[in-house]
Design a protein around this nucleic acid. Structure first.
Length: 266
DNA sequence: CCGGTCAAGTGGGTAC
DNA sequence: GTACCCACTTGACCGG
């Protein structure tokens, strides 16, 4: 139905979001966390009649001066900072007890820290090469199976747990970024729909004013102003032959109502 | 010094 | 019970 067809009153405008989200997630604390439009939130603007019977990367890698030389296997950056202070995830520790180069390096570095007497958590900064390889891998698959994790860890000279954590954090960053993008998208939708709502309200107002100015028989609901099936004339009588199509009040115009019997229209 | 970034810790949930 | 994921948090580090 075109907007021009709206010539009766009883119209209602609505602006809002309809949610079709089907969430698997267990802990959704904020409605927008996740994927705005892709969440199933669809912005909508509705105009309805009330009448009788119906009523939507890549994080910059910050490399410290210490790690300017991008060496994939620099152990001081790769494994130096793995804290042994309060690691509760024994399963990883256990699984890593299959002896590898990585673990030997890690334990060496950890013992270095112990020699220090420092128990503080040190921050690992991945090298450019490590980050690049992780990113490449993430592009291929955002989650890893155990074998992929092991292989990647071996290749990067990191612990499998570190690879796992990197992927977890990477997924979280992706999600956050997507949320921000969706948020922007929804803001724009909201602005557009608000503007559309304003425009429709204005048109509605104008049409109401027009209705008041019309003669009584012109004020019939739009649905009653359909074509007469017998003579194919529309009420209002505008055609190329004025003498045939024009009508007067006395002639009783050929208004056809679906509520009447069509055969009895003429 | 402060705010941002990010690796890592923690706790809870789910699947198998 | 284990392994994994996710949300949230912590703490180290860095640049302005």
């Amino acid at each position: 139905m075109g907007f021009d067809d709206i010539c009766n009153t009883g119209l209602v405008l609505g602006l809002g979001f309809s949610s079709t989200a089907d969430y698997k997630s267990k802990k959704i604390t904020t409605p927008l966390v996740g994927k705005g439009p892709s969440l199933g939130l669809e912005p909508s603007l509705t105009l309805s009649l009330i009448s009788g019977d119906r009523t939507y990367e890549q994080q910059p890698i910050k490399i410290s001066k210490d790690h300017q030389s991008a060496d994939l296997y620099r152990q001081d950056s790769a494994a130096s900072s793995y804290s042994n202070a309060s690691v509760k995830r024994e399963r990883d520790v256990g699984s890593e007890e299959t002896t590898t180069e990585v673990e030997r390096v890690s334990s060496r570095v950890i013992s270095d820290e112990d020699d220090d007497g420092s128990n503080a958590r040190k921050k690992l900064r991945l090298t450019k090469a490590q980050s690049a390889l992780l990113e490449e891998s993430f592009k291929i698959h955002s989650t890893l199976n155990p074998k992929q994790k092991q292989d990647l860890a071996r290749e990067l000279n990191l612990r499998p747990r570190q690879v796992e954590v990197w992927f977890q954090n990477r997924r979280a960053r992706t999600k956050l970024k997507q949320t921000e993008v969706d948020c922007e998208f929804l803001k724009k939708c909201c602005e557009t729909l608000t503007e559309e709502n304003r425009r429709l309200h204005k048109e509605l107002h104008e049409l109401k004013a027009l209705k008041i100015a019309q003669p009584l028989y012109m004020q019939l609901p739009a649905a009653t102003l359909t074509m007469c099936p017998s003579c194919e004339r529309i009420g209002g009588g505008v055609g190329e032959n004025p003498s045939k199509n024009a009508f007067t009040i006395a002639q009783k115009p050929h208004f056809y109502s679906p509520f009447n019997n069509p055969s009895a229209a003429c």
